Amino acid sequence: MKLREQINRISGLRYVTDELCIHSAAGRRCLMEQEWLTDKVAIEELLSRVDTAISFRSEIRKQRGIEEIAHKLTQLHDIKGTIQTLSHRTVCTDIDLFEVKYLAILNEDIRDLIRFYELEGISSPLPDLSHIVSVLDPEEKKIPHFYIYDAYSIKLKELRAQLKIETDEEKKSIIRNAGLEEEDVVRKQLSQLLSPHATSLETALEMLGALDLLLAKVELFVQLQWSRPRSAQQTTTLVGLVHPQVLCILGEKGDTFQPVDISIPKEPTLITGANMAGKSVLLQAVALAQTLYQYGFYVPAAKAEICPVDNVMLSLGDAQDIREGLSSYGAEMMYLSAIAD
């Protein structure tokens, strides 16, 4: 189950994702396509990378490196469609080749920054795309544009030289057309040469998007002072739990949110209290914390130990569905029936 499928089901989840300062479309897609994790090892791996990135912030040099990487990631374009074109062995346009070159150069720049500032712990090793840079940047200028260089074809170089000195318009037209045909030949050759590297390009794109998301998480968790949840075996324990969206709304009104401590064993748990005592908000906060944990996020609590679960199902409030002709009671019964199934 991807995060995009949960975003309107879990109260406060969209608020949290909107607060993330993600720099790129690739990073935003990576966020929305995150899978629901039930394996403790996989969850701990994501959380450990956040821990590492936060620890680097205490070192001035490494913090500078993280800031440089974040700045680079503002230049990351989501070229998944272009990479698919390349993988299908379709002849690329100049724009396609530019996008591939741009991604490869950006990947290599960030690889260099990670090595230089010794930031290896924040990401799995990025793929080596230096060979792609060499192919698309034969003049080694690392300029972010693409051009069919003379270096790609001796014939093309000769035709361009002839075009510069020819004065007869009819002959110039013939030479120009011959040059365009040769450029098409070069595009086809470059596409064939780069096609086997489509997987590496896709890996680089996904990993850079994940890195963008990671750095956004770090900024948010440090700013809001959220805590790293620990994986539990039997009982989920949340200390100082708040609902971040409600906390923000109350803060804007000059009111405060009372943090809650709660322990939830595997057995059914009953919460009782007077009307307007905060039972619904508490349930929403618990559901949000559980969901955030299983997508590799810190949680809005002072301390958290959470047991992974297969799913979070929350039934609260007015579930009336006019489009289906159901009353609030009928809609609620339908939803509870789906949960029971």
Rank of each mutant, 00 (worst) to 15 (best):
L103K: 09
P127N: 01
E118Y: 06
R4E: 11
R4I: 12
L20N: 00
L119H: 05
I322N: 13
E99D: 14
D18C: 13
K171R: 15
L224W: 06
A338M: 04
L73F: 06
D341K: 15
H88D: 15
C92R: 09
L159Q: 02
A216V: 05
C30K: 10
P300C: 08
Q225P: 06
Q192W: 14
Q290S: 07
V260Y: 08
G179L: 09
K72Y: 14
R57I: 09
L193Y: 07
R9L: 14
Y293K: 00
E44N: 14
E169N: 11
P259L: 04
I60M: 10
W226C: 01
L126E: 05
L73V: 09
K2F: 05
C92Y: 07
P125V: 02
A277E: 13
Q225V: 04
E139H: 01
R4S: 11
Y15Q: 03
Y152T: 04
T93R: 13
L86V: 10
T38F: 01
T256R: 09
L316S: 14
H77G: 03
R28E: 11
A319I: 04
R9I: 10
S58D: 08
Q6C: 12
L316F: 12
E44W: 01
G240R: 09
A210I: 01
P127E: 01
V186I: 13
N8L: 09
N177I: 07
D318G: 11
S263F: 00
S280M: 09
